[in-house]
Computed example of a mutant assay.
Amino acid sequence: MNSILEKEKKLNLALTKLKSLNLENPDIKKNIEILGEQKNQLEIEKSEIEKKYKTLVDEHDNLTRKLEELENKEKIEEKKRIEFSEKIDELNQETNTLMDEIDKWQT
């Protein structure tokens, strides 16, 4: 029981001290205003950084898509080169065969 009375006295003392605080202190008001201005400035900077980040993400996505398109085009071109080379080889073989046939006819 004694403990409860002591706690109540401490609580009442703390409440009295809180009530006696002068919240109208000009230094506190000025500090609160400065903190408010700093908060606003940080929010503006945050917003600008978020916009720049979104722009960079969009740019990255765009570049990634373009790179994939270029890689696909390169694969297609390589496939065409291989097919062209194979056709040339076929034509060379046919030409050699025809030349052999011509040689046979001439002899």
Rank of each mutant, 00 (worst) to 15 (best):
K29T: 09
G36W: 01
E33L: 09
E43T: 10
L70Q: 08
L35T: 04
S20Q: 01
E37V: 07
I28C: 10
L21M: 10
L35E: 05
D27R: 09
I34R: 08
K29I: 15
R65C: 04
R65F: 02
T55F: 12
N62G: 11
L21P: 00
E33V: 03
G36R: 00
E68S: 01
L56A: 13
I28A: 15
R65L: 11
K52Y: 06
K79L: 15
E83K: 04
K52C: 06
Q41C: 04
L13H: 03
L63P: 01
L42R: 07
I82E: 06
K17M: 15
N72P: 02
I49P: 06
D58E: 15
K73I: 15
E69T: 11
N62A: 13
N25M: 01
K46F: 15
N22K: 13
F84S: 08
F84W: 05
K29A: 14
K52M: 11
S47C: 08
D61V: 06
K54V: 12
L63Q: 06
N40A: 05
E83L: 12
E68Y: 03
L18P: 04
N25I: 00
F84A: 14
K52Q: 14
I49F: 11
L23F: 09
E45L: 14
L21C: 08
D61A: 11
D58R: 02
H60E: 14
T16W: 04
K17W: 10
K54S: 09
E69S: 04
L21E: 09
G36Y: 00
K80R: 13
Q38Y: 05
D58G: 09
K66I: 15
K17I: 12
F84T: 06
R81E: 02
T55M: 12
L18E: 11
I28T: 10
L15M: 09
